Structure formats: C-alpha cells, structure tokens
Deep mutational scan, measured.
Amino acid sequence: MQRVNMIMAESPGLITICLLGYLLSAECTVFLDHENANKILNRPKRYNSGKLEEFVQGNLERECMEEKCSFEEAREVFENTERTTEFWKQYVDGDQCESNPCLNGGSCKDDINSYECWCPFGFEGKNCELDVTCNIKNGRCEQFCKNSADNKVVCSCTEGYRLAENQKSCEPAVPFPCGRVSVSQTSKLTRAETVFPDVDYVNSTEAETILDNITQSTQSFNDFTRVVGGEDAKPGQFPWQVVLNGKVDAFCGGSIVNEKWIVTAAHCVETGVKITVVAGEHNIEETEHTEQKRNVIRIIPHHNYNAAINKYNHDIALLELDEPLVLNSYVTPICIADKEYTNIFLKFGSGYVSGWGRVFHKGRSALVLQYLRVPLVDRATCLRSTKFTIYNNMFCAGFHEGGRDSCQGDSGGPHVTEVEGTSFLTGIISWGEECAMKGKYGIYTKVSRYVNWIKEKTKLT
C-alpha cells in the first residue's frame, strides 16, 4: 500500500490518463441519441435557420407576430419608411378606419389613436360632414345658397324668414311668412316636400332668348283662358290664391305678392273693366268669414305684352289694390325667389296649380277651390304637342294621358313649387288646347323671366 501511494504521488498524470480511459469505455446513459432527441424537440425550422439574422431580410411573422416588435424591426421587413409607417399605425392600436367614419364618399386613412378623412370636392370637416359648395344638395341650405369668396357655403332665406341657429334652416321672422300653410287642420295635408338634388348652379339658368321682337298675326285659340281631375282644397291650404270678379264672377285667378299687390295673367284683364279681388276665398257660393274683398285701382301688364300681336306672350300683369290686405292664416303671400332659384325650383319637376275653373272641358265651374299636382314636361315634348308657338318664356306641365289639367277660369292662378315646406311661385296658368285632352298640356308663363320686374313694381313704400 505504501508503494502504491508513492507511485500516485510521483505520477499524477498517469492516474488522470487511467481515469479518462475508464470513462470513455463506459456506456453513456444520461444523453439520448440524435434521433430520439429530435422526437422530443420537434420544432419547425425557421426561415433563416442556421444563418445569422443580421444578414437576412426581415420576416413579418418572425419579427412582429411571434413577439412584439419595434418600429426598427418592422422597418427591416418593409425596407421602406412609408410602408412601415402605414403598417405601424394599425399594428400599434388597430384600424381606426374600420367603422368607416368618413361621410359623403370620403376616404379614410388610419393613424395612431386617430384617423384622417380625405374629402371629395365640396366637403370638409373631420368626417367630411361639412358642405362647402352650393353645387351639392344646395349646400344643405333649406332655401338659398351662395358661395363666399373663400368658396364656403353661405345660406340665406327669402323675405319674412331668418336663418336658424344651425345656419342652414329657415324659420319665420314674421307672423305670416310667405308660402307657408298655417291653418292647423290643413298642415297635415301639406304636399310632399321637395329635397334639393345635386345641381350645376353655374349652368342652372337656361341660355334662352326671349323672342321679344317676333311679330306674329293673332292666333285663334280655343278655350285658351284655361282644375280638371283635381281635388277639393281645404280652407287655408292655398292662402296665396285669390279669385278675380268682373263682368262675371271667378273669371280668373291670381296670387298675393304682398298686402297691396296681386300677380295674374295679362290676358285676364281689360282696361276700363272694374275688377274686384277676393282673398281668403274657399267656396265661392258661401260666406265663410275668411274672405277679404278689395278693388283694383291700377293694372300693370308687362311692358312687352301686346294682345294685338299675341294674347299669351309675356302673359303676366300686376294688380294694385285700393287697401292693403290683412295677412292671416287664410290670406298669405306666395314666396318669389330670384331668377336663378325660381328656375331651379321649376326644374324640380312638379308643381301645384289651383283655381275655381271648370271641372271638365266646357263644363261647370268649381264651387270649392280645386288643386292638382302636375309634372313638368320637357321642352321637346311640349313643342311636338301643339302647332302653336311655345315661346321661351312659357313652359308645359300636365299629363300625356289627359284627364287632369287646369281649365277655363283658372287662368292667372299660381303654379307653385314647394321647397322644404315653403311654396314659391314658378308659373302662372296661361293657356292650353281644350282641357285635359290626351297628348295636350297646360301652358304656363315662366315666372323666372319676370321676377325682377315683379319685385321692382310691387315694392311697398
């Protein structure tokens, strides 16, 4: 034993070699072989497995989906700052455009905790909710729209109204504003409101030439003092309507412009014939205590009207009353817009006519005020429907199939267009061939041609 100890002390290297040989010859039971080890760690190889990531292109799944990435790591994937920024906006807080917040056709661009709407022409605001041009839906104005110097929408209202708090709607500024039905039992019968379409306001006024200088022999019209197929109006439903009495009662109609003036057809009036105007009328054979009678003290036909040349060209006249009318729910003026808007309103496509005229061709006159909704007829169809001249200051309205029309005794009465609950004068009943005849239409004086003249002559002093 002493000898062994001496050998170990003198030859430590020998001992180490012996131990190493023993270990190498022993069977290893701690580690699995290569094949079995792979069965336990069965993990798919990654895209760049075996390579240094710093030297390969980034992978979106590896960089940002398996674990949260930084902007720089995302930049490695896209290799483009702009594309990385677009991805980053949604990656950080989701897609803010998912709810489609942009209105009126706006395009949404996502941002971090926010979004941006790219608005089409005519709109602005956070969600493109603000109209900035009158060309689109009248700028959301209830009545009139004008573009300011910086191309912003400025709404306005006709006389007797003021802008509401929203700067879009119009509200009454006087007790009985024009064009409004205020009798409670008839307010439910107000005709369907007309909503502004998209309009090209630059070209809204037709490029028409008034044929002022045409000389033409007097034409022989049949029954051209021209509501057939209409309905009984309720008291106060058309408070701007008046009836004219002269040699015979209810020979023509008219509309209240203001307390002192009536507008009617020029062919209705004769110099030297006494005319009485009755406002607030409903049943011409009954006294309903809503009527107001006034005498006409002055007749002003349009300066281009000449019955000797043509009885229905420039067929418009103004009547001055001896005493002002007292405005109330049964006696209310009709609204008159400017030339541009009167023309736009007419193009809405349908209007209402009213009167006490004959209820059928050569038949009896109506006792109760009649009204009828009539569609506008395109000019080409209008011209083809008659052998008589249709001037540019006239328009056609009615039904091709016949059966409904204005008729004798309705002449001078109103053709009105309702705009968001307020009625505007767009025409004056003038003439036609018979009444409600198939293929024939009622012919009306186009008020847009005469609004400046009306307003100039009827100013209240």
Rank of each mutant, 00 (worst) to 15 (best):
E171V: 08
E129T: 04
A266E: 01
G50L: 06
C396T: 01
N283K: 06
Y441W: 04
Y391I: 05
I7N: 14
W88H: 04
E76W: 00
L425H: 02
E171P: 03
R358L: 06
L163R: 04
V228Y: 10
H361R: 11
I443Y: 06
D338I: 04
A279W: 00
K89A: 12
V451D: 02
N310P: 04
T158P: 05
C157M: 01
R180E: 02
A149C: 06
Y444E: 00
C170A: 00
A265G: 05
V243M: 06
E433I: 05
L327F: 15
D378P: 12
I7W: 13
K446C: 05
E124G: 11
K152L: 10
K260L: 09
G179K: 00
V202T: 14
Y341K: 05
N304H: 09
E76T: 01
S204D: 13
V326D: 13
T386P: 04
Q185F: 14
T85W: 11
G363C: 04
Y352F: 13
R46P: 02
L367P: 15
A149K: 13
R62E: 00
I112L: 12
L32T: 10
S49L: 05
C335D: 01
H400P: 15
I443S: 03
F360T: 15
K457G: 05
R43I: 00
V195M: 11
L383V: 08
D200M: 06
G432R: 14
Q408K: 11
A173V: 14
D322W: 02
C178T: 01
S187I: 12
N104S: 05
P172H: 05
R364S: 15
D131S: 13
K109S: 08
H34G: 08
N310Y: 05
R358Y: 06
Y201R: 13
T381L: 09
I344S: 15
R180T: 05
K39Y: 05
R226Q: 15
S70Q: 06
N245C: 05
G427M: 00
A279C: 04
G236R: 06
A233Y: 08
A250Y: 07
F55P: 01
L346Y: 05
S204T: 10
K146W: 10
E285H: 11
E285R: 11
V92Y: 06
I454R: 00
S49W: 04
G272V: 09
D150K: 09
I309K: 11
V183W: 09
C268D: 00
T271M: 14
G253A: 15
M394E: 02
K339V: 10
T426I: 01
H282K: 07
G439V: 03
V228R: 12
N59T: 04
L327N: 01
S423I: 05
S49V: 06
L24M: 14
E420P: 01
T215H: 06
Y371E: 06
V377K: 05
G230V: 15
S406L: 15
